[in-house]
């Protein structure tokens, strides 16, 4: 009945051969199968909220969404979100420039040059900074960049605070991605006589690029959504900025400031939903862009390296 199962069989014995051997085993296998069906149900608990949220945000935002939403200033409780869109782009650009500048170079250093103890400390500190709550960074930025510098609320202070918030994500991704490049690549490059900086820039960086970009885009999405640190450094404004030393509006701030007005207050709530919708669209676009890019890029790399 039991057949030749076991004797000299492969490590992963085909389970069907074992099914007949005892009732207890059959029960265990059934349980295994049931768990295999039951556990993925948890995805419903996660994906249903996601789609519900996307559905409702678009349903509430789209009916009143017009071209003017993108191009006009907010006037009273109506108008458009142009100043906030502009402010968001400026803040994200500042934050991305700062965090990518620091994070990439620091990642290069940590993954390739840093002596082991220094790398250890730098990595721990990077993870720690990522764990500091955004609102606490907002307080830090408020005291340092708004009060201490006597700048007041400025887009520059907001951009710098955002950069601080984004830096650990870029830094840690860059370091991990560069450190994860297969050692054979490094050994081959060095054996061919390349210098370490040549290896880093020409070999490791292209291999790590998709992951690094994912990290940067993820940091941008996170930064885009953080209202707390920006509100207390960049302030808020309903007119488009003309200089970095002015307070500026931004999309997540618009959601926070407009969300709890009852519908008697004109279209504040509508503006809040439109700002939320625009943030989601930007996050979606970032996600899709990085996904497309890394898929294409990996195809190309595969052709080159394998």
């Amino acid at each position: 009945m039991t057949g030749p199962a076991g004797a000299g069989g492969p490590a992963l014995a085909p389970r069907n051969e074992l099914v007949d051997s005892s009732g207890r085993l059959r029960r265990r296998l059934l349980f295994d199968r049931a768990i295999g069906w039951a556990l993925p149900l948890a995805f419903v608990a996660v994906l249903f909220p996601l789609f519900d949220m996307l559905y409702w945000i678009s349903t509430r935002a789209l009916p009143t969404f017009t071209w003017a939403t993108l191009t006009e200033n907010q006037v009273g409780t109506g108008g458009g979100l142009y100043p906030m869109i502009l402010g968001t782009l400026v803040l994200i650009a500042l934050g991305t420039a700062l965090s990518t500048g620091i994070g990439l170079v620091a990642g290069f250093y940590t993954s390739e040059y840093a002596p082991a103890p220094v790398a250890r400390v730098a990595r721990i500190a990077g993870n720690l900074l990522a764990g500091v709550p955004a609102i606490v960074l907002g307080y830090f930025g408020y005291f340092l960049l708004v009060l201490y510098t006597h700048w007041g609320f400025t887009a520059l202070a907001g951009g710098i605070t955002l950069g601080i918030f984004m830096t650990p994500y870029v830094y840690r991704t860059a370091d991990v991605a560069l450190s994860n490049v297969p050692p054979s690549q490094r050994e081959a490059a060095l054996a061919m006589g390349s210098r370490r900086d040549q290896y880093l820039v020409r070999i490791a960086f292209p291999i790590a690029l998709p992951t690094i970009l994912t990290g940067i885009f993820f940091a941008m999405a996170l930064g885009l959504g953080e209202a707390a640190p920006i509100l207390f450094t960049a302030g808020f404004s309903s007119t488009p900025i003309t200089s970095l030393m002015q307070p500026t509006g931004f999309l997540s701030g618009a959601v926070w400031l407009f969300y709890d007005f009852p519908s008697t207050y004109g279209s504040f709530l509508g503006l809040a939903f439109q700002a939320a919708f625009l943030s989601v669209v930007i996050v979606l676009a970032l996600n899709v862009a990085v996904q497309l890019f890394s898929d294409r890029y990996r195809e190309r790399l595969r052709g080159l390296y394998q």
């Binding site: 995805f43 996660v46 994906l47 996601l50 519900d52 949220m53 409702w56 945000i57 509430r60 993820f218 999405a221 996170l222 885009l224 959504g225 953080e226 209202a227 997540s252 959601v255 926070w256 969300y259 709890d260 709530l269 809040a272 939903f273 939320a276 943030s279 989601v280 996050v283 979606l284 970032l286 996600n287 996904q291």
Partner: peptide, 24 residues
């Protein structure tokens, strides 16, 4: 696919969660 979707969940701004929770 699920990893991509959960990643999207991670990227959605907290104000969006907030307004969805508050209103809907």
């Amino acid at each position: 696919i699920l990893a991509i979707l959960t990643n999207l969940l991670a990227g959605i701004p907290s104000v969006v969660y907030g307004i969805w929770g508050f209103v809907i």
